[in-house]
Design a protein around this nucleic acid. Sequence first.
DNA 1: GCCGCCGTCCAAAGCGCTTTGGGAAAGCAG
DNA 2: CTGCTTTCCCAAAGCGCTTTGGACGGCGGC
Lengths: 345, 345
Amino acid sequence: MNLKELADTLGLSPTTVSRALNGYPEVAERTRARVMAAARDHNYRPNARAKGLATGRAMAIGHVIPVSHRHEIVNPVFSDFILGAGEVYQSNGYDMVLSLVDDASQASAYEEIAAKGTVDGILLHAPRVGDPRIEILNGIGLPFVVHGRTSMNDETYSWVDVNNRRAFARATEFLLDLGHRRIALVNGLMAMDFAARRQLGYCDALAARGVAFDPALVRSDEMTETHGYVTARDLLAGSAPPTAFLAASIITALGIRRAVEEKGLVLGRDVSIVTHDDELSYLRNGVDIPTFTAVRSSVRQAGALCAEMLIEAIRCRDTPARHMLLEAELMVGQSTGPAPLQRTG
Amino acid sequence: MNLKELADTLGLSPTTVSRALNGYPEVAERTRARVMAAARDHNYRPNARAKGLATGRAMAIGHVIPVSHRHEIVNPVFSDFILGAGEVYQSNGYDMVLSLVDDASQASAYEEIAAKGTVDGILLHAPRVGDPRIEILNGIGLPFVVHGRTSMNDETYSWVDVNNRRAFARATEFLLDLGHRRIALVNGLMAMDFAARRQLGYCDALAARGVAFDPALVRSDEMTETHGYVTARDLLAGSAPPTAFLAASIITALGIRRAVEEKGLVLGRDVSIVTHDDELSYLRNGVDIPTFTAVRSSVRQAGALCAEMLIEAIRCRDTPARHMLLEAELMVGQSTGPAPLQRTG
DNA sequence: GCCGCCGTCCAAAGCGCTTTGGGAAAGCAG
DNA sequence: CTGCTTTCCCAAAGCGCTTTGGACGGCGGC
């Protein structure tokens, strides 16, 4: 059933039916009611492609997911982010289209997406330090919002980010307050902007208390369980093992805990862990009391905020760039405790 | 730059340019080369909406993700599945569009998607036992492939599934061989088809060895870390605790391990775990030797297979339904060992 | 009674592409 | 040279919708 057929059924012109359905005033209310009823009865939906062609709007938003061929890992927070964004899209009538793009063809991919006209805006994930994609997108002229930031020219584009620096400074301070002095940072890949900021926060807090920064205590890699495990096992086997760990994600923290417990140490007594917690739906941090002490910030909420910001940018194309810095909340759980008395050896 | 402009630049008609770009034979090779070069130079891409309108093909595939409002959980395997499917789509020129649909509006959602015409086919996730969506989709007439199965009328639609029954029978046999008799099954939600099949496999294996089925040893819930932990803690605290656990996913297994180790028990000695392993990219099962003994089957590969099957179904609309049953592989890791001698009390 | 306005509807153009149905030029055989 | 096929190209219709620019009748004001 298309518009013309529906119009024929009603003995009206396509023009009138279109206007009736889209809420234009030039149609009698009685007629509009008749049209609406018929549309419902016949289960009519306007063809999205035709509508898009006519209006110039795609009513869809593109998410570009970088697929690196060296280390093919899907960001585990991705599905929760999508959920948050998706709900906002849905209630605003937007579709969500995903494009997997490998690192090599990043530049051309965005131009292609823009030229094809399948989307009205783009949501950019996982920006790297000094990510060139932002410049590319700015050049293309399609509205976009970045989940996260990249170090330079923050003002030239819209973003939603967690205050990673503050969050990790906060977490570090908390551990310092508990008397820990050897605090390991099990970070994500340093090429990622958020990882760089987290390390800055960690260093800030150490410096503020006059604790020397020890590069041997900082490790960066993809945020897998394995990375947490291997790193913690390594560090704990050293001559001057850390008494506390800062983890970049709950998944990493799980790996760290495994190494800790495997060594017969007790979490919260012998070793403390503070983790960043994205509040992933499938990895809730404990039932009532948080298992891990964590600086937490819902990635799902971030998804919703990004989506709202982007939709607004699409509606009014020439509004200035907007920014939203979310503060993570420190939740004390069972994985932290006072630093143990200095062990000899 | 659109087709008409490109044609004008070249001094050709839109018809010829279109044919040149789409590989039709009615155009001189010299002209074609000229057109191709100009298209590249001007960075021309045909507008997808217009192309779709003209051809009737959307060159996009829809993934419908159920969002239940009671327990809002995103399937943790989802992102890996998407990755596998996405790569296939990309290399075949298809876009991927995601729709979040809440349980209430499942039926109408599919009709809407079909009528809107944004996609050429649908990939169905996480089918439930006797899932009504399959009937709906069959009625709509849009090609679709199910990742998983539902119990009835397997022949009437295309699916890709792991042989869950066999996999869990296999895992159970393995534990029985090691001498375990009290084997707990920490399953996913029983409403999910795969969970039901897994339990069947478990029961099959017990029955084949004459071991009585104890309903107290079977627990079903969403496959979170918390579920694994809480369930295992409960069961281990009972008067006749299990000596082995079957976990529905690595995430659940992590929770079980936590409960085991918290109780001071040693994995692979006091308690064994066999888990299903979807080979999630962010939760690799160990570095060299698998941490968990597992029946494994890559969900990413399943995504790719689903995508291929669906694209084929779209290309030849009236091919019969196809089915693909993947066998999971048993990988012995460090989480299993001979059943401990019977503890008294 | 005439004019102008308003409310209601419609015809037709246009969005950017594909595809049908020629048509002109070139090539070939007779 | 004629008639036919082949090669290469084009004009125009059409995909399903929106939107511009009227058309038409009824109404009130003067």
